[in-house]
Write a protein that binds this DNA or RNA. Structure first.
Lengths: 384, 384
DNA sequence: CCATCTTTGTTCGGAATCGAAGTTTTGTGT
DNA sequence: ACACAAAACTTCGATTCCGAACAAAGATGG
């Protein structure tokens, strides 16, 4: 019925449309139509007025925002050793957030059971108790087929291949569920929360594994579904290490958190997580620092041609290793040294603005996009 | 006035909308509105009916096409040693086409003078004499700033830096002129004429230089303006050769047509053009074949990570060297050997469908997009 | 402090768009 | 050969949407 109500809601959600006049400009609709439509959306409980903004030389705009009681989404970041979860309102603001340890190798049944339990528990908390759940976004540390909402051909997740986690959660929670790769989500999250005006962005997630998410023209680029893989690019190293893919000079086999821990173990230094690795770097343990710096150099070596090729506005460095300054410095150095001046002139290289939350927030942003693009908006409108 | 007439024309132009019913489905407009609007467009001379199509179980559709007398665009491919030119109708069909030798090092004044003269001469030919010129698309063999319609920082085009060829042609011809890099245009041309349903495509142009054009989600990806550069990626070679960028292991310095000719000259074999190079390969001259195969291997080595990263549907090989079978075979081999199975499983690797016309046709497609997205459609409608 | 210009938002009549029902023309099944 | 379904348009009344003028609120500048 109401053809373009969704457009208006989406503009408000992204923070681009803050007043009726601005919505009219951005949506191309007539100011009068926008006014009417906004009135309906307010009546339906989707939008609400939020005081007045600053004048720009005339009457002050009556600011609009999404009504905080309209509904919430749940965003989940499933890591190899943790489960992070948040409840977001429709504008993407975090209402609740918590993390618990986990182990993805326990297998899909175990993990999704635990996940489900925690989602339900979280939704019973006072802050969000009465609010309808509209969707769930889940990030997984491996290749994902978003259409089927399954993990496919994962390397460090035994038992997960083809497990239909999306369908399962969707059936049990009764809402739409989107599943996506964690590096892709990091790109989405950083784009949405950190660099909303930069339409071409690469986000490198260097943690236990190494992956990259791509935002092209403001949208997540998936290619045929596997885009962003940088883990099996050959790098220049003296000693070959056999990778899971069968080659011996893959970036992942030499520069991932897992690879670094393996090397340290051979030197008699036992490290259990990427976080501990970074602590050792910050404590100034020379062997570890050298290793991490070298990993950064290798990552930079791989990223250089990709930056020339894709020519992004921003290169975001995230994941556990990005908390280690030598890693970041080495990546920066390699890129500035070897990329074309034309490609680096206006390039921003930054660590993740949203830090450890990037993937989780990306999951939220993705499912929010889906919800706001769905029939839900029109249905809610016509329901009252 | 007529808000969405342009959408309909564009759908017909792209070949997606072939009947009123199909247009209604694709545009989202009501069938009745489409019918009325189409009637107007036919009256205005923009569309015409073109017989009936095959039935799909009911009444046969009355097929629509752009009226061939509505106007034309000129597409130009400025090469280092040639000038190719065509006149296209609004649907992108070639009406006239011709090539003449040229030398880009003569400088911008000389070349654009010659270009202008030939455009004017071509437009006086009987086939297109009465038809209004609506735009010109120009491809240049170097980096281009499309917004300013200038060449920037070219390496093999002395005198061209910042030369405002777009503005100059536009002033003298009185129509809009778009200027774009040749590899980008090859991607556009191949996407439009060869792989219209594949939305992610890489087109490698291996001729005198080496470049790559990117189609992401169906649109030309420009990044910050320099996207697609693969010429200065380091490759593994025994003997360093200093490149114009100051490094010694750039792909371009070892695998471009210019580099191969230089190497052959050192061996006492004088070759004047990429075409002659390919002839020698086809004649089975072993030194040349080895060299070209090695160039293909190097190009493949550079493309491998890019294919993993971008994960396209299609990789198009074009430019002079792509006519040499050993070059193509070596690229294919390198990619299938080292890319991820997930990335190559559904990947098509093909030589340019439109052959030597790719860049020129891409220039036409690009300017056609601009014309059909401009006010021209609405103006023509309201003019009668 | 008042006139003027800007910007925001609303009112209301006319025009464009929709959508449901109808017409035309064809495949399909019996 | 016939009824029936299906697809491609067309007609026409009901609705929506636009756009120009207006009202509200405030900045600017003498």
């Amino acid at each position: 019925m109401a053809g373009s109500a969704g457009d208006l809601v989406r503009l408000v959600a992204k923070g681009h449309g803050r007043s009726r006049a601005e919505l009219a400009r951005l949506s191309g609709m007539a100011p009068s139509s926008v006014s009417l439509r906004v009135e309906e959306l307010i009546d339906a409980g989707l939008l609400r007025e939020d005081g007045e903004g600053a004048s720009r030389g005339g009457r002050r705009p009556r600011q609009l925002r999404l009504h905080e009681n309209a509904g919430v989404v749940v965003a989940v970041d499933v890591g190899t050793h943790h489960l992070r979860m948040a409840v977001l309102d429709l504008a993407g603001r975090v209402l609740l957030e918590h993390e618990l340890p986990g182990d993805i190798t326990e297998g899909p049944e175990q993990v999704s059971e635990r996940l489900l339990e925690h989602v339900r528990m979280t939704l019973r908390q006072a802050t969000v108790e009465q609010l309808p759940l509209l969707g769930v976004g889940i990030g997984m540390p491996g290749p994902v087929d978003p259409a089927a909402a399954k993990v496919i051909a994962p390397s460090r997740m035994p038992g997960w291949n083809e497990y239909p986690i999306g369908r399962r959660m969707s059936e049990l929670l009764g809402v739409r569920v989107v599943v996506e790769n964690d590096a892709n989500l990091m790109a989405v999250g950083e784009h949405r929360y950190g660099w909303p005006d930069r339409d071409n962005l690469m986000a490198v997630k260097a943690g236990t594994g190494i992956g990259c998410g791509i935002i092209a023209s403001g949208k997540l680029h998936r290619g045929r579904g596997a885009a962003g893989d940088i883990s099996h690019v050959p790098v220049h190293v003296p000693e070959p290490v056999t990778c899971s893919c069968g080659h011996s000079d893959c970036l992942e086999a030499h520069a991932s958190g897992a690879a670094l821990r393996r090397t340290l173990r051979a030197q008699g230094i036992e490290v259990s997580s990427s976080r501990q690795l970074v602590e050792l770097v910050n404590d100034g343990v020379p062997e570890v620092t050298t290793l991490v710096r070298n990993a950064g150099r290798l990552a930079g070596q791989v990223l250089t041609p990709l930056v020339n090729f894709f020519n992004p506005d921003v290169l975001v460095l995230g994941g556990g290793l990005s908390a280690a300054e030598p890693f970041v410095a080495a990546v920066r150095g390699a890129i500035y040294e070897r990329c074309l001046p034309l490609a680096t002139r206006d390039l921003e290289i930054a660590t993740a603005v949203t830090g450890r939350d990037a993937c989780m927030l990306g999951a939220g942003a993705l499912v929010l996009d889906e919800v706001l693009a769905s029939e839900w908006v029109d249905d809610t409108l016509s329901a009252r």
